[in-house]
Write a protein that binds this DNA or RNA. Structure first.
Lengths: 136, 136
DNA sequence: GTTAGTGCAAATGATTTGCAAACAG
DNA sequence: CTGTTTGCAAATCATTTGCACTAAC
């Protein structure tokens, strides 16, 4: 069976689910489950790590968040982009991130996909480096 | 000290390193370390799993193989076809992948990083979609 | 011989799961 | 109440590492 429409998967509204969604929502870019867990803990809203993972996975399955894989293999989550597709320039030192985006990149992706006969192509682009403050 | 030129990292030629390189070379697409390990075992050349990992990581560091992350988080390795920095257009259905690359994207990355005051920026770009054969 | 490289088994670290207690509706 | 959801701790899984041992040069 499955939901007739829309928001799908929420069965019960709980404090912890709301907290996780909240934490993700207030994050500028991608966050690991552990980061979110820490963030919640710091802000006083206790949520078990397992619950963070469970919630994140449900959200991902429901298509409400994007999941990406860091080079190290950890899962990175972010609340689903609105309409505007953009990417992130993340500082590997302090974690600050800037949204960047350019019509040109999107166009290149589309062109490349087409040239190779691929369809339904999505892309993930992450720029990782050192921000001004963390440089030397 | 370091190598005067070229192939870099190889210090000693060993049977097991050769086997791993070999196994990877004969693979059409991406392989996990575990798959390669199994493949070697089946073909009778015993190589410890740890050694497979160690070798693969050295190769990756030397830029002689590409590393990709499966959605599940496992590392996927493949012998690099070119030395140039490039990206992959991967079919989510059959896993076939095409190397793509474009000076323009690299340039855009550099420009964007600079504009935001970031340095030492690396980037990861993956295009995922359906190849011609898997379409419809 | 020396030293780098190997294999195993134990250590990691992220993520998952089992299960009894806590909670929403 | 009654079925969900939680939290903890134990269990997984891929990958890494410590260390005694073997092989390359």
């Amino acid at each position: 069976m499955d939901e007739p429409k829309g928001r799908a998967s929420w069965r019960r509204g709980t404090r912890q689910r709301e907290s996780v969604v909240d934490a993700l929502g207030s994050a500028r870019g991608f966050r690991t489950a552990q980061q979110l867990h820490g963030q919640l803990e710091r802000s006083g809203r206790k949520v078990g790590l397992a619950t963070v993972y469970r919630t994140l996975n449900e959200l991902a399955e429901a298509g409400e968040v994007d999941v990406l894989r860091a080079a190290s293999g950890e899962a990175l989550f972010r609340r689903c982009a609105t309409d505007d597709h953009h990417h992130h320039l993340v500082c590997k030192e302090c974690g600050v991130s800037v949204e960047v985006g350019d019509r040109a990149v999107e166009a290149w992706v589309g062109r490349t996909a087409r040239r190779h006969g691929f369809t339904d192509v999505t892309h993930a682009l992450e720029l990782i480096g050192l921000c001004r403050d963390c440089t030397g």
